[in-house]
Design a protein around this nucleic acid. Structure first.
Length: 504
RNA sequence: CGGGCUGUGGCUCAGCUUGGUAGAGCGCUUCGUUCGGGACGAAGAGGCCGCGGGUUCGAAUCCCGCCAGCCCGACCA
């Protein structure tokens, strides 16, 4: 059997279908019997565990601690903040009963006698319940700041689920902090955005634009939403992380009050920030190729896979021993401050089939060891960022000694490719005609990419553009210089450019 | 929640128009030959044909009802 690519269709032919096929071929996740919910399989979950470890380290390093708050939120809590309700009410799962009884048809139904006095909402996000808790914890300015993160699942009843990118239930982290002053809370919001941008670059090999959301794209209840935006290979934007300055909105809604240094009652200033399993989808779409996933080494569950080649059964033992010995030497090396992660694949499968499995899964480095290698003291090495037939034959010592550098090079390659893709498809646009042409699909092209253009700052213009072209303001870039110009849509005066794109 | 479509071994589907013993490919199991780039042969296992009712000597197939899922339109990390 010979195929051009491991994944059909190719990215070029049908990007959304390619994505689904990659998720399946790489054994990352599958749809469950529950609509909109996914089963994250060990390889996919391994990626999430590595993301968690990386982020958790960065959170701890910036003074945060983990805690856990309830899955269920009393309905009345959610109703406390008006904008928040409006944002989330449409997509909430609600628990109304606490007991089942036979339905008389061989099944079960909620016991009408067990209806809850107050329905519970399965958290779509936890601002309200955490706010209610902080209200109890905070009495004095001496109790601030509170710097807490939680790793949790949340539920948003989505109409259009897509594995990892948009599912009814997903895993994430949500940081929730409370501060004495506005300045401190704003600094926290920015600090965590910087953490996300650093994580995207250093762990995910993903260049990101940072900036602020327009009022229309803001988190419900926030004063200001900051975000990181990445470009994936169909040139659409994906929001990879958000950090919100919540002002005193939630403090007022939940009663987070304290006695200040001046002995006055004041409301705290709060923030929240989060990234989710959507990052896995982002990585797939940003780095994958027509043979499957390509994982940035720092989040790869296995960074090196060793494939024993034993043509004759009587060689197996010797080959396995050589593989185990190599694995041990590799594990003594480190990359990104952690021991190199190595897997020896001893399954009794055809060699080609095995190799292709690991290619599709995106393991950064594959090594084959057979009798000839043992004799010569060499190994056969293939890298996932290069062609699948391209092999190098270093000595085992050279290979082990160079593994840290090799993983670093692969990370750099991915970063470079993603940066080139983004830069090649990011343009400045001045006129409505150009703008429309840029975002109008020609042939099989999906999207023009990112456009920096002037915007008059009104919600009307923003909505018109969205209606006309399905293009949104991804962010008002944090580092964009003031520049006088005319709005690309309305022609009205504008003081700076914003980032437009089609998005996930 | 409005419009279109589909429910048949683990997966993808054929069979239904014109009722007559449930099929294929892939996957799985065993054995043999293979194994340095997605192997081949042989033999097997596996099905309340979505659910309920009706018509009929006889229903995967025809009729009615229900349920579930998929695709398209308004929201979203």
């Amino acid at each position: 059997m010979s195929q051009q690519t491991a994944i059909t269709p190719t990215r070029e032919q049908d990007f959304p279908e390619w994505y689904q096929q990659v998720v399946k071929a790489a054994d990352l996740a599958e749809n469950s019997d529950v609509r909109g919910c996914m089963v994250i399989k060990p390889w996919g979950y391994g990626i999430w565990e590595n993301m968690q470890r990386g982020l958790d380290g960065l959170f701890k390093a910036t003074g945060h601690k983990n805690a856990y708050f309830p899955l269920f939120i009393p309905l009345s809590y959610l109703a406390k903040e008006a904008a928040h309700v409006e944002g989330f009410a449409k997509e909430c799962a609600v628990v109304t009963h606490h007991r089942l009884v036979p339905d008389g048809k061989g099944g079960l139904k909620p016991d009408p006698e067990s209806e809850l006095a107050e329905p519970l909402v399965v958290r779509p996000t936890s601002e309200t319940i955490i706010g209610a808790t902080y209200a109890k914890w905070v009495q004095s300015y001496r109790d601030l700041p509170i710097l807490i993160n939680q790793w949790a699942n949340v539920v948003r009843w989505e109409m259009r689920p897509r594995v990892f990118l948009r599912t009814a239930e997903f895993l994430w982290q949500e940081g929730h902090t409370a501060h004495e002053t506005e300045a401190e809370a704003r600094a926290e919001t920015e600090q965590m955005l910087a953490v996300y941008a650093q994580f995207a670059r250093e762990w995910l090999a993903l260049p990101v634009f940072t900036g602020e959301k327009s009022a229309g794209e803001r988190f419900p209840g926030a004063e200001q939403t900051l975000c990181i935006e990445a470009m994936v290979q169909d040139r659409k934007a994906i929001q990879a992380g958000t950090s919100h300055f919540l002002g005193q909105n939630f403090a007022k809604a939940s009663g987070i009050q304290f006695v200040s240094r001046e002995n006055k009652q004041e409301f705290a200033w709060t923030t929240s920030w989060g990234v989710s399993t959507r990052l896995i989808g982002t990585v797939i779409m940003a780095h994958g190729d027509d043979d499957g996933v390509i994982l940035p080494p720092r989040i790869a569950p296995a960074q090196v896979v060793i494939l024993p080649v034993a043509p004759k059964p009587e060689m197996r033992e010797a080959v396995f021993a050589a593989c185990d010995a190599l694995a041990a030497k590799l594990r003594a090396q480190s990359y990104g401050g952690e021991a190199v992660r190595v897997e020896v694949d001893k399954r009794d499968l055809g060699g080609g089939q095995k190799s292709w499995e690991w290619i599709k899964r995106g393991v950064p480095v594959r090594v084959e060891i057979g009798p000839r290698d043992i004799e010569k003291g060499t190994v056969a090495v293939a890298r996932r960022d290069r062609g699948h037939k391209e092999k190098a034959f270093p000595t085992a010592e050279e290979f082990v000694g160079g593994i840290t550098a090799t993983l670093g090079e692969i990370h750099a390659t991915l970063m470079d490719r993603a940066t080139m893709l983004r830069d090649a498809n990011t343009v400045k646009i001045e006129t409505k005609e150009e703008f429309t042409a840029f975002f109008t699909a020609k042939g099989k092209e999906i999207s023009g990419g990112f456009a920096f253009a002037h915007w008059d700052g009104t919600a009307e213009t923003e909505a018109e553009i969205k209606d006309a072209l399905k293009v949104t303001i991804r962010c008002i870039p944090s580092d964009s210089p003031a520049e006088d110009g005319a709005c690309v849509w309305s022609g009205r005066p504008s003081g700076r450019r914003v980032l437009f794109a089609k998005s996930y």
